Simulated assay, not measured.
Amino acid sequence: MAADLPSLDLLRSLSDRHVLTAVARAGQLTRAAVAATTTLSKPTVSQSVTRLLAAGVLVEGERTSGGRGRAGTYLTVNDAAGCALAVQAGPQGVVGEVVALDGRILAARQRSLAVPVTSGALGRALASVCRALTSDSPGPIRALTLSVADPVDRRTGRVVELPASPFLVGELDPVRLLTDVVPVRPVVDNDVSWALLAEREQGVATGVDDVLHLYLDEGMGAAMSSGGRPMHGARGLAGEIAYSRTLVPRSGRRAAVSGTLMECVEALGYLREGSKAVEVEALIDDLDRGVGQATALADAVGELARAHAYLLDPELVVLSGRWGRHTRIVDAVTTAIGDSAGLQARVAVAQVADDAPLVGARIAALGELLRTWAPEPHTVPR
């Protein structure tokens, strides 16, 4: 039996996506340059450009000059056709951007928050920032990605409340909260998951499908990619390493006992008084000086990384966060992985250090924005 041929609509969507992606990445291209970049035929490019111009997604700009052959016109994305919002909510407050299809940041807004923050205060700040960004946008908002410094149930978009959270008090429902603020359903995820996306697109994990990313800062978290797909768990709790078991030194005992990483940090005296946030500056200072408590914590992180590596079998372990990047932490994780039979994961420090969750949310927002005009077919019919 002969295999079914791809439908004409599918072929059109594929060619439109290739053309739109090429123009967006380059900023501006002629039709001839689009054909050369995409390897599509000139007639196919011409038909796709005609459709995208009619839809208002692309516009024709200035004419080319110089060179051989006939002069052409440059194609550029049309900001007025629609933009995306990328928003990050974390200890630094709420930060948001209006992003054009070619990656330009057209506007930015920020609201400070006192940590830990209540769900009500965070909700009001989120709504305020998103409302302001919507007004700033030259066109309708067609996609929104949101990074939150807590676990997220991806099925509902709700932020899951955990007792040891250093950031958020109470459960937050951003999807419901933003229903009357933006015209699209937000894609909500945990900040470390977005940071891993940024690292896989622009950092040390580029081209690596199986990655364990450990984030160690005021808060502690992890994100995982298996076979190129992110792992979230049934309720978004995958990666909550503050609750993972490791070695906890106890006063008066010769040997450490089993406990959570959060209990270990607390037992060693590195929790900020009255909160569940790590006292980062004091910990880094002790790591610099090789203080016993700090090196014990580094060893505990190494044990935790080894346990997760046996479970996930990653090709790469990425360390990020202010104390997660410290040489003693890197050495402890490298030693723990290297001393483990069968494990061959390499250990590296994250390269996308500045606003990594927002960078990841921006990357995802651009992908979502592109899909609103040119859906990406999952498979070619057979």
Results as ranks from 00 to 15, higher is better:
Ala3Lys: 11
Leu5Pro: 12
Ser7Asn: 01
Ser7Ala: 09
Asp16Met: 12
Thr21Ile: 12
Gly27Pro: 12
Gly27Glu: 08
Gln28Leu: 10
Gln28Pro: 03
Gln28Tyr: 11
Arg31Asp: 09
Ser41Gly: 14
Ser41His: 14
Lys42Cys: 08
Gln47Ser: 14
Thr50Leu: 13
Ala55Thr: 01
Gly56Pro: 05
Arg63Asn: 08
Thr73Pro: 09
Glu97Phe: 03
Val98Leu: 13
Leu101Gln: 03
Asp102His: 12
Arg104Trp: 08
Ile105Leu: 15
Ala108Glu: 14
Arg109Gln: 12
Gln110Asn: 08
Leu122Arg: 00
Gly123Gln: 08
Gly123Asn: 05
Ala127Gly: 09
Ala132Arg: 14
Arg142Glu: 05
Thr145Glu: 01
Ser147Ile: 07
Thr156Lys: 02
Gly157Asp: 07
Leu168His: 05
Gly170Asp: 01
Pro174Met: 10
Thr179Arg: 15
Pro183Tyr: 01
Val188Gly: 00
Leu196Lys: 04
Gln202Leu: 15
Val204Trp: 05
Val204Ala: 15
Val211Leu: 00
Leu214Gly: 10
Pro230Glu: 03
Ala234Asn: 00
Ile241Gly: 02
Ala242Val: 03
Thr246Ile: 04
Ala255Val: 08
Ser258Leu: 11
Met262Asn: 06
Glu263His: 09
Leu268Ser: 13
Ala277Gly: 11
Ala282Gly: 06
Leu283Pro: 00
Ile284Ala: 10
Leu287Tyr: 11
Leu287Pro: 11
Asp288Ser: 01
Asp288Cys: 07
Arg289Lys: 15
Gln293Gly: 14
Gln293Val: 09
Gly302Ile: 00
Tyr310Thr: 00
Asp313Arg: 06
Leu316Lys: 08
Gly321Met: 13
Gly324Ser: 11
His326Trp: 07
Val330Ser: 11
Asp331Phe: 02
Asp339Val: 01
Gly342Cys: 04
Arg346Ser: 13
Asp355Glu: 13
Ala364Lys: 00
Leu370Arg: 12
Val380Glu: 12
Pro381His: 14
